[in-house]
Design a protein around this nucleic acid. Sequence first.
DNA 1: CTACGAACCTGCCTGC
DNA 2: TGCAGGCAGGTTCGTA
Length: 270
Amino acid sequence: MPELPEVETTCRGIKPFVEQQTIVDMNVWQSKLRWPIPDNLALTVKNQTMRSVSRRGKYIIIELSNHHYLIIHLGMSGNLRVLTDGQPRRKHDHWQIIFTGGVLRYHDPRRFGSLHYSSSIERHPLLASLGIEPLTDTFDGDYLYRCSRNKSQAVKGFIMDSKITVGVGNIYANESLFLAGISPIRPAKKISIERYRQLATHIKQVLERAIEQGGTTLRDYVNSDGDQGYFQQTLNVYGRAELPCVNCVRPLKLIKQNQRATVYCTHCQR
DNA sequence: CTACGAACCTGCCTGC
DNA sequence: TGCAGGCAGGTTCGTA
């Protein structure tokens, strides 16, 4: 997926087009996503006005005038775009919302994304136990330190755990650990509060920078307005296995943790 | 509780 | 050129 910066970029991209617009119709071409799209959703949302667009973790939330919500996840390869020029449906376009003034269309080759309809955000089963947002003041080194005291789990898995915090995906976990000089395989409970403060700062920085730059572009990610992001140019470790560390020039090491690629410098990260 | 693998999918790249 | 295998940004679920 799109990691948090891409989701945030998508949110910001579609927001000015869809907020306060009324849904005229909806098409569901493929309801088999990560979870099935509810039957008859088109009938349910027709004539509703989209009151607001927001984000919780990697979920995009559209508030409707009936006080229910559309909850959208982009999975690994999804994107949401606003189209105003009547573009024909492409391969892997799975649903669209037609509103006064345009179309909000979902495209997702791998179909790991989802679309939910719910009366509540915080009580929705997939969102209820999410950890805190990394870009808020309550997320800091002290918080990470407190949460980690009984965790023998490797720190990389710990910061990617959505019950702790949301939105730190594989790319940004690798990058922030590099910037903080912390080995991804170190047990979470063995890291000092000072180092967690460093880590929290770098997690915020790396996410904020990526948002500023419009999100990382990989393969099939496209911004909501169709432009390509360019954050990938500044990645220090992700996708750079065996290449020289930007700091010490030694080759970066590639390992697998929880079936995900971890790239790090065994010299600079301890 | 943790850890791990499988599962959901398609596309792309590498190597034979 | 074709085909098999491995890899990919996420997340949940089942089993040990």
